[in-house]
Amino acid sequence: MDQNLNTLNDLDDVDTSPPYAPLAMPRQILERDRREGVIGALLRLLTARNA
């Protein structure tokens, strides 16, 4: 996540960095555990409303 600003004369004299105001972003889960198998996946899909 390194976001060094490359140093070139044209932008050197100006602070162009966006404000530092961090916000948490929890990584989302999109893949099911392969160990649960096809039947497990189907059951979870059918009961997805409660997932």
Partner: peptide, 28 residues
């Protein structure tokens, strides 16, 4: 107008926006 260049392009465009939100999203 802000400008920043990433040296590591993880996640392509979605990663580019995510990087901004993680670092500056709290301001907006």
């Amino acid at each position: 107008v802000y400008y920043r260049n990433r040296t590591e392009n993880w996640g392509r465009k979605a990663g580019n926006i995510e990087d901004f939100i993680r670092n500056s999203g709290g301001a907006y």
